[in-house]
Design a protein around this nucleic acid. Structure first.
Lengths: 154, 154
DNA sequence: TCTCATGTAACTTTACTTGTTTCATGATGA
DNA sequence: TCATCATGAAACAAGTAAAGTTACATGAGA
């Protein structure tokens, strides 16, 4: 199956939005993301419900950030998406009668739960602010490289 | 996506096989697993290639274990399946030109790689022998409960 | 040589994300 | 007021991958 890229996508959207002061339409975001405006609205709905962003209809409308980038972690964004399934692997039966399957499920569940806890903790460690800072660092670096490639301009 | 349950399934098969001395046919395993013989053959193929099990054709044929249950970990079995994708989430673009997306991918990749490492380590900690022992413990416990429910028989 | 069992290929089914179309709703501005 | 712009929501199509199914070839025993 195609892997769920909503978390990746919504973070992409949020960081782009941070570069604008005015509301950004789904249309513009869709162009940046190379996708469809409806897809943008879909992944943004959960964030609106949790108060991370707001949407306005009509002229001059669109999406605006209404959260402190330094207080929102990637984990918060993950939850805003509805905490989608993390793993591509699962049990055959959730509550099997077969004792063999129960033993297998128990062993796998322990390992997967530990991995999930670690992942959630790591996502909680990173804020949108840090992500945005990383982007700006990458942007500055590219600018420098562009300068160095054109010494005559400097 | 329906979640990939091959790891769960193949462990289930292996533990069932451990309860038999003679070769077990795909047909019988399929009945135990409530699935199709071809599905059994499919998920067992990788294990055969790695020498964990052997298959014999013809009369009296079927699948036999040919590995030390105490020396094979769940991680080995996972690898025998071809190390299928672990996570249900992924990046939109693997190598994006957009710097925002690069920053997002880098942050997510770090978190996911750590979780993957932990999961692989945990799977490596558990052997098929331990899993089988857990099954036998569950079996013994159920027998005891059944006894207690029929005190007149005791 | 007949039967049994695996090996393999092709096709169908199922489930889910993504993409797209369509229309309703509401806000802005002339 | 009314046309326009934008979101909201529903419905449907496309693409993908695992799982289920069918069919047949291959090879081992009896």
């Amino acid at each position: 199956m195609r892997r769920d890229s909503r978390l990746s996508g919504v973070l992409h959207v949020l960081l782009h939005m941070a570069e604008f002061k005015q509301p950004v339409t789904s249309e513009r975001l869709a162009v940046m993301m190379q996708t469809n405006p409806v897809v943008i609205r879909r992944i943004m709905g959960g964030l609106r419900d949790l108060g991370l962003v707001a949407s306005e209809k009509g002229h001059g409308g669109g999406w605006t950030l209404c959260c402190d980038f330094d207080r929102v972690s990637l984990h918060d964004v993950y939850l805003a998406l509805g905490a989608p399934e993390l793993f591509a692997m699962g049990h055959r039966n959730v509550a099997p009668a077969c004792l063999v399957e129960q033993a297998v499920n128990a062993a796998l569940a322990t390992a997967f739960e530990e991995a999930e806890s670690l992942l959630m903790a790591r996502l909680g460690d990173v804020t949108l602010g840090q992500l945005s800072a990383d982007f700006h660092a990458r942007f500055a670096k590219r600018e420098r490289c562009a300068q160095e490639a054109r010494p005559d301009v400097a």
